[in-house]
Amino acid sequence: MNEETRAHVVRSGGDQKIYFRERFWDDGMVRLLGREYNAMIVSSCYTAQEGGIRCFSCHNMHQEQDDGRPVDAWANDQLKPATVSDSACTQCHQAATYQATSPTHHLAESSGSRCYNCHMPHTAYGLLKSVRSHHIDRPTVAAELASGRPNACNLCHLDQTLQWTSDYLSHWYGTPAVELSPDQQNVSAAVLWILTGDAGQRALAAVSMGRDAARDASGDDWMAPFLARLLEDPYVAVRYCAGRSLRKIDQFSNVEYDHVAPAEQRAAVAAGVLRTWSETTRTETGTRAATLVDPAGNLLQGVLERLGAQRDDTSVNLAE
């Protein structure tokens, strides 16, 4: 441990476990904004060869003059125009190999075929949003079980289980199967993050529910009860992210919610959201068992409460 790190540990109260938990997942991957470089330099895309990927392979300090995007669109990630697609990766990897559907098993023009959505998922948190991991790797369920770090597949397919992901990764890529609990086999991974995860996992789930690609893949007719639950979360940041994503759902686009309002006001809004959702006729609910919605469109309240009682209330202070 160098002197700078030791000084940070001292400011964290001297507990190394707390220091690292507030900055890294249990497998050492970065879990907060501001350490993208630390993550990138241990990736094989950086270390494999001289002239491998660098910050400026994808990013610009200033927007290019011929970049037709609005400045706020560029500023979101400060990406070069070409690297909004897979061009950053195909600087080294053969483009023809990855332009077919066979490597990704997704439609070629879909978000599921973009390299970075599988290999650089949004597993870091900062500034009230999720940020792409810059430790470039492959999605596995085993890594999530070992570290708590959400996997790329379920960050998009929010309505699917870890078992579903494990089965597809095994079938498509020969990834070794893993042993999962009954809940991990039958309950959506995102639902488990919300009901049983720590505050960082809950924030990532809330943000993901507002991402267009994830909503397209998962549908949003089942999300409101879980976002409503997060409107009463103990953490202000989680509540803010949940409220923002809730407004992405058409019927709640105008919901009035203040994430720093008194608890009774927040509870009233959450109850109203749940009531509105319950009174709405939902379609295709028979396919939503993993999201704790029965074929009649009702919540499996007993399972929800059982899992909610297992919420990880470990104190989380992600040190941005």
Score class of each variant (00 low, 15 high):
residue 22 E to P: 03
residue 29 M to D: 09
residue 33 L to C: 15
residue 40 M to F: 05
residue 51 G to S: 11
residue 56 F to T: 08
residue 66 D to R: 07
residue 66 D to G: 14
residue 68 G to T: 15
residue 71 V to I: 15
residue 80 K to E: 02
residue 93 H to E: 01
residue 96 A to G: 14
residue 102 S to D: 06
residue 108 A to E: 09
residue 120 M to Q: 14
residue 122 H to V: 08
residue 124 A to V: 11
residue 125 Y to L: 10
residue 127 L to K: 11
residue 128 L to Q: 12
residue 130 S to K: 14
residue 136 I to R: 13
residue 141 V to E: 02
residue 143 A to S: 12
residue 148 G to T: 04
residue 151 N to A: 09
residue 151 N to M: 11
residue 154 N to W: 07
residue 155 L to T: 05
residue 158 L to E: 00
residue 158 L to D: 00
residue 158 L to Q: 03
residue 166 S to T: 07
residue 167 D to Y: 03
residue 184 Q to R: 15
residue 184 Q to P: 12
residue 185 Q to M: 09
residue 186 N to L: 06
residue 195 L to M: 07
residue 197 G to F: 01
residue 200 G to S: 05
residue 206 A to H: 08
residue 218 S to E: 02
residue 221 D to F: 07
residue 223 M to L: 02
residue 228 A to C: 03
residue 236 V to G: 03
residue 236 V to M: 13
residue 238 V to I: 09
residue 241 C to N: 06
residue 244 R to D: 02
residue 244 R to T: 11
residue 245 S to M: 07
residue 248 K to A: 04
residue 251 Q to A: 12
residue 255 V to F: 04
residue 258 D to S: 14
residue 259 H to C: 09
residue 269 V to Q: 08
residue 273 V to G: 02
residue 274 L to W: 13
residue 282 R to V: 14
residue 289 A to M: 04
residue 297 G to T: 05
residue 299 L to V: 05
residue 304 L to Y: 09
residue 307 L to S: 10
residue 317 N to A: 09
residue 319 A to P: 06
